[in-house]
Amino acid sequence: MENESGALSRVSGLFSARGYNIESLTVAPTEDPTLSRMTIVTNGSDAVIEQIVKQLNKLLDVVRVLDLNDGKYIERELMLVKVKASNQYQDEMKRISDIFRGRIIDVSDNTFTIEVTGSSSKLDAYLESLDSESIIETVRTGALGLGRGDRILKA
C-alpha cells in the first residue's frame, strides 16, 4: 500500500466498519520507500474473506492484495517474553528456550527476557510449555508472511 499518512486507518477503519476481525496487523515501509507492506491475520468464511479482499482492493491507498492462504507461504512472528528466573527456574527456562530455539537477550537478578521467532502457533506452543506462574509479560509483533518461491507481491 501507499506509504502515506492515513493509509493504515483506512484499512483498520474498513475492518471495524464492516465487522471483520483483525487478529493481528503489522505494517512497515518496504525497500521502495513509497510503499508499505502490511500483513493482516483475520478469520471468516470463504465468502467473508472474498469480501475482505475485494473491499481492500477498493481502497485507493491499497496497491495490491494477496491472500497468502491461496498458496504456499512462510510465516514468522517475533515474541519477547519476560519470565521469572530465580535460581529454581533458571535451568528449566534455559532448557525450554533451547527446544524452541529461543534466545535469552536480557538477564536480571530475577528475570530472563527471551526472544522467540516462528509461526504464531509455535509461539503459542512455547507459552503453553511454560509454567503460567512464571510469565511476567509478553509482547508479540503479529505475524508476517511471504509467498514461497515464485509467489511474490509487488506493485
Binding site: A47, E50, Q51, K54, Q55, N57, K58
Partner: peptide
C-alpha cells in the same frame, strides 16, 4: 462496475 458488489449478499 464494482467487484465488491458481486456475491456480497447473494452468491
Amino acid at each position: 462496475i464494482d467487484p465488491a458488489s458481486i456475491s456480497k449478499r447473494v452468491k
